[in-house]
Design a protein around this nucleic acid. Sequence first.
DNA 1: CTGAAAGCGCTTACAG
DNA 2: CTGAAAGCGCTTACAG
Lengths: 384, 384
Amino acid sequence: MTGHITHASHLSGNSDRSPAVSIRDVARAAGVSHQTVSRVINDSPKVSRATREAVLAAIDQLGFRPNRAARALAGGPVQSVTVLGSNTSLYGFAAPLEGVEEASRDAGFGMGFRALESLNPADMRDAVERAIEPAGALIVIAFDQAGAMALECVPPEVPTVAMIQAPSSATLPGRPSVWIDEFAAAKEATEYLLGLGHATVHHLAIPSWSAATRRMEGWRAALEQAAVRPPNALQGGWTAQSGYEAGCKLAKDSRVTAVLAGNDEIALGVMRAMHEAGRRVPDDISVVGFDDVPYARFFSPALTTVRQDFKTLGKVAFHKLLELSHSGRTAPTLASPQAQLIIRESAGPPPRSGPRGRQAIATPLGTRPDTGPNSHDEGEENDR
Amino acid sequence: MTGHITHASHLSGNSDRSPAVSIRDVARAAGVSHQTVSRVINDSPKVSRATREAVLAAIDQLGFRPNRAARALAGGPVQSVTVLGSNTSLYGFAAPLEGVEEASRDAGFGMGFRALESLNPADMRDAVERAIEPAGALIVIAFDQAGAMALECVPPEVPTVAMIQAPSSATLPGRPSVWIDEFAAAKEATEYLLGLGHATVHHLAIPSWSAATRRMEGWRAALEQAAVRPPNALQGGWTAQSGYEAGCKLAKDSRVTAVLAGNDEIALGVMRAMHEAGRRVPDDISVVGFDDVPYARFFSPALTTVRQDFKTLGKVAFHKLLELSHSGRTAPTLASPQAQLIIRESAGPPPRSGPRGRQAIATPLGTRPDTGPNSHDEGEENDR
DNA sequence: CTGAAAGCGCTTACAG
DNA sequence: CTGAAAGCGCTTACAG
């Protein structure tokens, strides 16, 4: 009646039709009991090769697909994850999500998503519970405070992997976690700027509730190694707006000639602020971003930035989760692909520190020159 | 019993503990049968006010939350959607997703996401089936070909709402669908450009497998109304890269002085191409985008563009789905919030058609001047 | 308006 | 290695 949508039928290119084929149909077709079918689809070792193959054949022929709800209800293995995160439109949040989606799809898992909107503890707990219920497993994007808070609300017995900002020093997280350690890349980017002749490099940090981010440490390390006293890092938000606001302040200080932005959107905001203030990038001021969003190379000037492979991070997180649910436990933490400095156009020598034109500069170790849109990317440019 | 050292762990500010409270627990607490509890949580009218309230109280006190898997198995109403789409990083795809997420959360629905990666028919059918299985209902982002193909694979009995490109002419879709009709805004944007003095306006279209998009029709209508013969619209992809490639061609033709890009990323690519070709925006060439991505106002020049409220579109899609599952059927189609021209800096008079400085121009009806980052947005700038 | 029954499709012990 | 049993938490008819 009415209302609800008990769907039935539809189905597959192959043979059958309607009401969906169940484990019992397969059993009948294969001449075994439905328990045996269950064993086969759960990779139980206690099935003879012969029966297994017969069952597999029947499954294939009938187009059987196990019912996730039933499996979950009966206490079967986790078959889906929900990703919990406070943002979807920021590249640094969307790209990992893509990675999780892809990996989960490959593994036959369902993937849900739930946004974190409130920092209120009660709401947070509620959001977490609602996220756990349908999936049984969680991946939380804990780059920001909301994510970190959510993580704390997750009961210990729920299989959970966190994506976090690289932990500074020895503060390893209690939960299985994955991250990209941008210490080296931040250091390299800063060294690159210093190598260009800048007296110092200012840092516009992304939000962090811990003392410092690894990228901040890398930045600081490079400065200290060069015997320059690190200026105060500016704390802001994640967005271009935030970078713009900070940039407006920075623009007034003629001593700042180089800024390492916490991400590409912030870098864009800074460049805009500089533009408005009449300071040219890179002639008057150099700007380096973080992330390498797909459109960063199309800025004018094309953005020099630290590429981070967030998609892979997402995949790693998922595989970590898989491991966690199979072997019960997993190494507590794990570092992911390295970040990588991509040199384009937004950084150059400081004003009147040398000739105006492009000057040859030693490319720092491990960097990869890439001068804008012409040089096609190696990767899959998801451009349909 | 013996040591109850079950220490705190998660869970609700309220009372209970562990193994999850079931419908039967609630029934016991309320002194009714579990069926009655079921009726209450399903808003059955056949429950007396008194019992309903007793049950509700018990639910509240125990912190009961119905088990989605069990409900689904037992043939209860749909409680989750999965969104099917080919992309996550494009704003035009990510923003609607956000809208769906929010609306589904408010409605107590779960939300899954599944990406479309292959255009191969068999893969497509498979992807659709996998998406249907766990949720029972679908929202497909059918702005592109992949989405459109997926839509065709969905069995008719599955509650489904499509987000589509505004259908041109009378080709209304067979499925319940939602869209943003950018005809008027595209026409307005084109008129704006024409009003600035451009002899014609070139259009760089987003991909479309139907004859023409509504925005293309709007563009064409404006030209025809001004008695100028529409140039061929250039067909490309969705990305900045694609805009860049087209822009490189356009840059060589000195007759093109104004281009209406299919989206903001394309516009960015075009601007980059012009920059490389030594053509200044907006002095030598005007560029107008589509979408108003959050960072468009931070470009230099800030991008004049047509804002589309994709998030609302997502919400509308979800509510449409809700309606579909409640009242069985729904109006076959529905148009969403209007698109709106946002005037910033990337368009101006054509070269030597007038004075070089800013000239006063009559603001077209319904437009909203917005000169870059300084003017804060009215909306919620999800900037934590 | 409210119980007792039966079953959704699966899985985990338990006997062979 | 393979069945028969019991049950996961809910819902939909079916009797009161």
